[in-house]
Simulated scan of single mutants.
Amino acid sequence: MQESSHKAGFVSIIGRPNVGKSTLMNALVGEKLSIITSKAQTTRHRIMGILSGPDFQIVYSDTPGVITPKYELQKSMMSFVNASLEDADVILWVVDVTEEDINEELFKRVLHSEVPVIFLLNKIDLIGEVEAEKRLEVWKTKVKALHYLPVSAISKKNIDLVLGLIIQQMPVHPPYFPADELTDKTQRFFAAEIIREKIFLHYDKEVPYSCEVAIIEFKEDKKIIRIQAEIYVERTSQRSIIIGKGGAAIKQVGIEARKDMEAFFGKQVHLETYVKVETDWRKRDSQLRKFGYNNS
């Protein structure tokens, strides 16, 4: 197809925490790029997933769930949401089948964007298609969108229909990225995210939310990748929890993270982890900048 008819654009995936946005982007791109846990507010950054076809390129943005920010880290997280909406050619507004009320913070952001909205009712595998259609009809009275669609990101139900609707709205434009690129993030970023996912899966209460992961060494040769990672917590007591009795807890995190890294990078991985205390890092601009958050 000629360059003049090539379509390319940006799609912002937004919604409340824990509505399945990350699972949805992974399904749309066909690769696991965003970490997935059952806990809310797992996503902290804007993660781009790139899907390229012979005559189109879609750049998806998985963003943190929309909340009213209470401290500096959450303010930075919401800045990623705002940036994705500013770039967007299409918005995927995602709710799940348990939601009934409009999130006012999210509604304001969508209202001011003035770009086409595709409204998705996710997790319909939990209730069935008949009940999903009933609930979608109710949402149609509350939210103005170009299209409304029931989907299941886990089972990939109607994901192909979502893709078709997005392509219809893409502007004519040359590709923004090379066709073989899947994301804008580095290997270091994904190594850190894989470790952070395991922390969310293995620890309860506030501990995972108080953790950040920094990759201090990433050395790759033909056969192996050697990674050193620092896990930061806010209090000494949290450090003890992360390490566990006799180091058992952090060892299990390392085993599972290394296994996922080897699958992701397609190469043997040697992983070393260290746990450090950085008091109140979530509230300090200097520390947030160090970890790649932008609070300007």
Rank of each mutant, 00 (worst) to 15 (best):
Y203R: 06
D280Y: 02
K185S: 00
P64G: 04
T63R: 05
L161D: 13
K7S: 09
L163T: 12
N18D: 08
S22E: 09
F177K: 07
K21C: 03
G30L: 05
V233K: 05
K283G: 00
K283M: 09
P171V: 03
D62Y: 03
Y203V: 08
H6F: 14
I127W: 03
F200C: 12
T183I: 03
E129T: 10
I14W: 09
K21R: 07
D96N: 13
S12I: 01
V110Y: 01
Q287G: 06
A27K: 05
A40Q: 13
L106T: 00
I58R: 02
F10K: 10
V66K: 00
A179H: 12
K140P: 09
K32R: 14
P174T: 11
A263I: 12
D221W: 05
D87K: 15
P175G: 04
H45I: 01
G164K: 14
P116W: 11
G49L: 03
L288N: 00
N158T: 01
E72N: 02
S152K: 07
K123L: 02
N294D: 10
S155K: 15
G164D: 15
G254A: 07
D184M: 03
E72G: 00
P54F: 04
L92G: 04
L136C: 04
P17N: 06
K251M: 10
N26L: 05
Q57A: 09
G254I: 08
D87N: 12
S38Q: 15
Y274W: 15
L85T: 07
R289I: 03
K267T: 04
W281N: 00
P178G: 05
S240G: 10
K108R: 15
T37I: 09
Q168E: 14
L165N: 05
A8W: 08
K140F: 09
K156N: 12
Y232I: 05
I225L: 10
V29I: 14
F189G: 01
I242R: 05
F189A: 02
N26E: 05
S38C: 00
H45Y: 11
H45V: 04
K70Q: 03
G30Y: 05
L85P: 11
Q238L: 07
Q238M: 12
V269L: 08
D204H: 14
G65K: 04
W139Q: 03
E212A: 11
A229R: 09
G246V: 11
M78K: 01
G128H: 11
I243D: 08
F200I: 13
K198T: 02
H270Y: 14
T273Q: 13
T23N: 08
I216H: 01
G53F: 12
D89Y: 07
I167A: 01
T63I: 10
S152Q: 06
A132E: 05
A257I: 08
E86T: 02
